[in-house]
Design a protein around this nucleic acid. Structure first.
Lengths: 347, 347
DNA sequence: CTTCAGTCTGTAAGCGCTTACATTATCATT
DNA sequence: AATGATAATGTAAGCGCTTACAGACTGAAG
């Protein structure tokens, strides 16, 4: 089946609509953008022509002429799993309310890719950006500055006058969880961290564990660290390594819920009882933390609020207003089944 | 030296670069788009100016002038979970190889929203679209046609000359799984389906279950259907309803893995042993199906291949070539622990 | 010294839209 | 009937870029 070129194959423009409705292009434009200033009568005609022709405005032309795009962007490390999904969802929703479209790109946890994506989004007309964390090439920051693109660093919190953060204190949150773990009698501890270079959240969470151990006067040698790149399989592998240690850790803290899910899975496969033999904890409190078995004790992060606030901050910044940054958001421990007291034999 | 820094360092344009490099805008444009036709010497100068100024091309202007955007779009029902993530990932990756950017939008399983999103993506310069399923407003199809936007229907398969599908046979796949369930002695069966209006995949899967029951000569009255909108909670609730039935079903088939995860969770909460008392199955084989307890027997869908193929098909269509559609993709059953023989008491 | 092909660069015409400004129509008020 | 205010529409100048085309240089061949 071959399509023959139809006599008028091109896609309709404003001018086509104007001609068909017997008005000027300006009037059609007004119908689309500010319907109230056009008389009822004319609007009817124009809208009919729009419908007849299947007209859709050309974004590029509109952006070029109006010098605004109604688009914000977000660069997240990965779309592979739900860690950023809920926050992003809230972000999009909040912006949608204001008629702003969200463009999403992912960096695969890679700084250079992230810089690329930032440039791409800006080139595509993003007027403001949601970024995750604060580790970023100097070039990326400089680019944002020269292009005058408002941005917020999210999922993290730093008190700096020159950057706006809508996030939480990763270090403190993890320290609190680690403190609870220590309070339950655990001493030999495994920590599965996401890769730390280029990931300030991962580093902060790790530092939090160290803080707690120091505060409890526990020897740092009792903390065994495995660094894993992203994914359930990585969590499984790291858990396996830690279980090979002697003495074997009685608690495995994980830098995020996905790694923890992997750890839990491996425990099941090895017939290691959680939490009776080994406790496991996560970080983020995404959907899977309730689904895994046993349900995961983890740090709850207010993803939705974070996303919504970031959206509002960005909107304010675009209007030249100061964003409403009231300090780090609260996190708390979501107590479930995977964390229990250290087994007696190990005490 | 008239090199005064301008008082208002607004964002640089092609012309600024040209001026600074002492060439015409055409040359700068060529440097950016077809570096080989510019002399080494000039290119150096221009690139230096680009760097000095932090120049980034304006997408709108470029699209307007070049009449191509290098952008494809995808409208998926939801980003909330991983069902579409892997396929989309492959889609994006494949396009990235060809220098094409992917824009993603979500429809929240709503036809009108989907139509909106289609229009939005096209307006933003999407030259081709990945769509999920085939249920869609006539207006949406008409729009795509008048705008001459190539699209593929994915996650589904229909043998129609006027539409290209890169997907699999939902009905047959579910029928095969249901046949296995029946072969294990289950007779009273619960089916948790996603909402069927506007969702051809959900309907096809349901039909598949019916097919299998008919083929096995099992009374349709033994099939109890619960329709749930999306999410784990919905799966839990539906499972609860089905467990209240008498006689109680011995197998609960779910229209997707998320609903199945909910069912499994509720079973755990109610102390119902899976699969000893009740079997549960899913559909999709996303990450969580391995993580849940017990691990989920489900239909494996070749998400990655589907995404990659869809990308290639769309590219071909944009070039005016016929897409390579070789029929439905294969699915198979991923056997795990959640499906077992019907308990004796129930036989 | 032409001539011609080949390379490189510049000129300028749009691409489809928005919007400041100009123009015209409408209507209550004097 | 003339006036001015107000509302509705039209005119046209760009927005920043690409690209067809033309012009200006090279150097080798005639």
């Amino acid at each position: 089946m071959t399509d023959l070129p139809s006599p008028n194959p091109s896609i309709p423009t404003l001018e086509d609509v104007a001609k068909r409705a017997g008005v000027s292009t300006a009037t059609v434009s007004r119908c689309m953008n500010a319907p109230t200033v056009v008389s009822e009568n004319t609007r009817q005609k124009v809208m009919q022509a729009v419908r007849d022709l299947g007209y859709a405005p050309n974004f590029g032309a509109r952006a070029l002429a109006a010098k605004r795009t109604g688009t914000f962007g977000a660069v997240i490390p990965t779309m592979d799993n739900a860690i950023f999904a809920r926050g992003l969802q809230a972000f999009q929703h909040e912006l949608g309310l204001a008629g702003i479209t969200t463009l999403v790109a992912s960096s695969s946890y890679n700084m250079d890719t992230e810089e690329d994506q930032i440039r791409t989004l800006v080139a595509r007309g993003a007027e403001a950006l949601l970024l995750i964390g604060s580790d970023r090439n100097a070039a990326a920051y400089k680019f944002l500055q020269t292009q005058k693109i408002p941005f917020v660093n999210s999922w993290t919190y730093e008190d700096r006058p020159d950057r706006v953060c809508i996030g939480f204190d990763n270090r403190r949150a993890m320290a609190r969880l680690a403190r609870e773990v220590l309070a339950l009698g655990h001493r030999t501890i495994g920590y599965i961290t996401a890769q730390r270079p280029g990931n300030d959240r991962a580093r902060a969470r790790f530092d939090g564990v160290c803080d707690a151990m120091r505060a409890a006067g526990v020897d740092r040698d009792l903390l065994h660290v495995e660094e894993a790149s992203y994914g359930i399989d990585q969590g499984r592998a790291a858990f396996g390594v830690l279980m090979g240690l002697s003495p074997r850790p009685t608690a495995i803290l994980c830098g995020n819920d996905v790694l923890a899910a992997g750890a839990l899975l491996e425990a099941r496969n090895r017939g290691i009882a959680v939490p009776d033999e080994v406790s496991v904890t996560g970080f983020d409190d995404i959907d899977i933390s309730e689904i895994v078995f046993p349900a995961l004790t983890t740090v709850h992060v207010p993803h939705k609020e974070m996303g919504a606030r970031a959206a509002r901050a960005l909107r304010a910044m675009c209007d030249g207003d100061p964003p409403d940054v009231t300090g780090p958001l609260d996190t708390w421990i979501a107590w479930r089944a995977s964390l229990g007291p250290a087994p007696r034999t190990a005490r």
